[in-house]
Design a protein around this nucleic acid. Structure first.
Lengths: 205, 205
DNA sequence: CACCGGATTGACTCGTTAGTCAACCCGACG
DNA sequence: CGTCGGGTTGACTAACGAGTCAATCCGGTG
């Protein structure tokens, strides 16, 4: 996968840890966390079985690492968006956009995060609820501020608004993952717009 | 668990199959499908290990049965709602209501169905996509008809509308399952209303 | 060159558990 | 009373796979 110039081998210490993580993404996405074996990860990475345990305490920790790494990036993106003074609707568009672009950029990684963590209330979801809830809290902040400013109406509690918004995004991603929804460059942009339109403007004529 | 009067043993053939299924719901909800052992199900049912295999081909088939049984009921409910001539918004309210009431009535069963099947794109989700998609298709029908009648605006493709609607519902249920959202009788009714308000009326003031 | 220590290897252990199966229980029926 | 068969039992097997570990490799250092 990674392209290496043989002449600069010296300068490229080849981060095996990274290679293992990237391989794990592919394997988890393909076979699922539970069904795959640690040896599958090692094979996919072109690395000895034991090396996985040199870098990670357990199979679980590989997934934890993938999730935390990426989720932190997401939280940072949301915080950044929150800090701007865009209209609330555009903030939501930016957030939905970031998540969808993450999927566009690395579908396997997003698939793993959503399927194995975010939507897995048993196993891993439970372990990472706090982190997941941080994202909800941030988005809730966006909605609440908009309600105070009168941009959004206040009848709908922010908690439900957030769940609807985030749930809509994940459901669309899941649709792509399952192959139930058409994918493609324009589908991505169109999804961003339509999700935000639905949540902000509603379906009613 | 089950109380039997020795004098009427004859008249009560005690459906062990059902007892096993009900026990499985509790165990799957508590420990998760992957983490629990078949012996846990047998123990919870107060039945010998082997009997599980007398009634079911495999551990997987127990879950399959639970899912298919309940999903069929859901599909029927949606079809029934679809057949009425209520306004689209009320149809959506009825559908959201049915799902939320299912959770109210048997949280464990809904938890299992959502966590282990509906949201599990690897493992079981993949096996049952067709069935799951039937529900989406039915709801899509509701939306499309509303768009033709001019009740809903047509800019938003029905696929996205459905994903947003259904995603919102599942996300709220997941919030309850995770313990991130307050539960309680009024929370249930309020959720129904707010989800539909969000999807139909939008957040914008 | 000798030595050190971290990276890397992969064969092996050890617990776990899905699924099997031979035996047993018990009501029905002749 | 005997025997037939489906329901029921639970010990057992067979496989599997996570995690361990002793050995090896290799670049750096004195």
């Amino acid at each position: 996968m990674a392209v290496r110039d043989p002449r600069v081998t010296k300068a490229a210490p080849v981060d095996k840890r990274r290679i293992i993580l990237d391989a794990a993404v592919r394997v988890f996405a393909r076979d699922g966390f539970h069904k795959c074996r640690v040896s599958d990860i090692a094979d996919e990475a072109g690395v000895a079985y034991g090396l996985v345990y040199h870098y990670f305490k357990s199979k679980d920790q590989v997934l934890d690492t993938l999730f935390l790494e990426r989720w932190e990036v997401l939280l940072e993106a949301i915080r950044h968006t929150d800090a701007t003074d865009l209209p609330a609707e555009e903030k939501l568009h930016a957030i939905a956009g970031f998540i969808i672009d993450s999927y566009r950029h690395d579908p396997d990684l997003m698939k793993v995060i959503i399927v194995e963590v975010t939507r897995a209330a048993n196993s891993f979801g439970a372990v990472h609820i706090r982190k997941i809830d941080e994202a909800y809290a941030l988005i809730r902040g966006v909605v609440e501020k908009a309600q105070q400013r009168g941009e959004f109406r206040s009848e709908i509690p922010a908690e439900f608004a957030v769940m609807s918004f985030y749930g809509a995004i994940e459901q669309v991603l899941t649709g792509w993952i399952f192959g139930l929804l058409d994918e493609g460059e324009d589908a991505y942009d169109s999804a961003k717009a339509h999700i935000v339109q639905t949540i902000c403007g509603g379906l009613a004529a």
